[in-house]
Nucleic acid binder design. Structure first.
Lengths: 305, 305
DNA sequence: TACGGTGACAACCGATGGCTATGACGACGG
DNA sequence: CCGTCGTCATAGCCATCGGTTGTCACCGTA
């Protein structure tokens, strides 16, 4: 007999209405339920509480002492929950009108983000855009776990069939080296010269993207040596100056690493990298569609103002 | 899509617990439910509210903004309901420890009530006794509709198989007459002399009791003339002085009617009336049993102090 | 590489909460 | 006086809910 004292808010609402009307049939109408249903629920509530709340007297209904005692508390519960429900209403609205943009590193690239944003907000002035930095463990930059609604990512993505994307930049890849490295003397390097260097690699969880930045495709089967794993720009920089290895980097990201002690050189013999805006393929929400449309327009220079 | 915003208080309790533990399995233990049940309920709550409350991150659980917004409201609802539940607890206790004694007219009869009460309260000091006056429409004096837990009634009762009783007084019946009535000159009358008089009768709803006070049994088939219906001592007195009829009255109730203009005379040829304490046969509650026991002891003079 | 611990999912089952149809019963009007 | 109306209660039905046990997928760790 574990006496759950929990109650359904609906039952309290029913009770309060009957207490106000002192009339089951009328109360049932106000509540949009049938009279028997209301009758049964009130009896169930009385049974649950072990107390007679209403005295039914053939042609009249009256509150008992217990019913009168319950009424104010029931009203307080209803009111408290009304506030909670309205908070949820707000949360729902906020969720509906907030777009979270995931990204691993700053997209930069010539005002891409501000341009998209300006188009987007002109189409949806009520919407808020939140940027969210996501570590490199997640190559989908938050799309996978719902942290982000759209995201700037490097191709290729894992689970390609779950996402759609628009390529926003195609950039040649450079190599980043400590400035003391022998190859730093060259102004340009062949990838074959790098194949035996220790590489800095993305985390395992990055899947095909890790392989891509190791340029696995260009290595004819011989596996790369891994100098260290990196999950952020800062880690990468530290690993480079510490001499743990070298790594490929998109041309657009070169400025993020060349702070001192690190140099970058163009690489021949590797495919260019592709940077894209991605979203969950089945996600049809207006804000998502508007953002991707804005992005496509910016890329294509459509309707430039 | 009538969006019931109602929520089960249990679900809020579940949510608050998970929000406190940030751990489903531990929360489930605290709540004494299985982990899948808890998981499902929380998801259902999220679905109902159309909002993500908790972010499950494989090896960690965190509140979302919506969850954080809900938490205080949920706590307020729980607290409001806790007060309500405790009020119901009190009401239950009060109901359990209050005995309602129904009666049609004052039992009087030599301190019967105080004697019973004193025995009763010495056995149940925590209990409260409430007396309740009931109109003569209800011959069970409130037992039938639950207004009373025990009641002082005149036999015979309707629905005899629903009640048990102890006879507390057996009194000869007198007749009450306006003092101007021819029979008022006699010091005693035969019922046969009364048979053709108009009688004051109890309401139809009194059932066999109405017939009893009309002394139907003594009338060999010829039906009585009804002068008026009466439902209280005052009505009876007024009807008597107005000359609407005569009526039988228990010896113990004679003082209630002989106020002026009305006289009473003993009646030969009618059975004595029986006054009883009655209760619902299936009612085994301790207070009811204690009261009837006290009554029996007082009647039998057992353990007189 | 096996293991322990996490939350999610599936299948099942009794209770709940709603409906319609009907019943009992007092009030009221012809 | 009798039929009808209005009231709340009951019965029988059905979908959904809220719980169970059993299992899985996943991850961190020994």
């Amino acid at each position: 007999m574990a006496m759950t004292t929990d109650v359904h808010v609906r039952d309290l609402r029913y009770f309060v209405t009957v207490a106000e009307e002192l009339h089951f049939t009328r109360a049932a109408e106000r509540l949009y339920v049938s009279q028997p249903a209301l009758s049964k629920q009130i009896r169930a509530l009385e049974r649950q509480l072990g107390v007679e709340l209403l005295r039914r007297d053939r042609h009249s209904v009256a509150l008992t002492a217990a019913g009168a005692a319950l009424l104010p508390h029931a009203r307080r519960v209803l009111e408290a929950w009304a506030r909670g429900a309205s908070a949820m209403e707000q949360a729902r609205a906020a969720q509906r009108s907030t777009l979270v943009v995931g990204m691993s590193t700053s997209p930069g690239r010539g005002g891409l983000l501000p341009a998209i944003r300006s188009r987007f907000t002109s189409a949806h002035p009520e919407a808020a855009v939140r940027l969210r930095q996501v570590g490199w463990q997640d190559p989908s930059a938050g799309l996978a776990d719902g942290d982000a609604d759209v995201a700037f990512v490097w191709l290729p993505l894992p689970d390609q069939d779950r996402y759609a994307w628009i390529v926003v930049a195609e950039e040649p890849r450079h190599v980043a080296l400590p400035e003391s490295h022998p190859l730093a003397a060259r102004s340009e390097v062949d990838f074959t010269d790098l194949a035996d260097e220790p590489f800095l690699a993305l985390p395992e969880s990055a899947g095909p993207l890790r392989d891509y930045w190791l340029a696995l495709d260009e290595r004819a089967g011989s596996p790369p040596r891994i100098g260290a794993e990196i999950a952020s720009t800062e880690e990468t920089y530290e690993a480079l100056v510490a001499g743990l290895g070298v790594c490929l980097v998109a041309a657009g990201n070169v400025p993020l690493l060349t702070l001192g002690g690190v140099v970058t050189r163009p690489v021949r013999g590797v495919s260019p990298s592709r940077y894209a805006l991605a979203w969950r393929k089945e996600d049809q929400r207006p804000l998502v569609r508007a953002y991707t449309r804005a992005c496509r327009q910016v890329r294509d220079g459509t309707g430039r103002r």
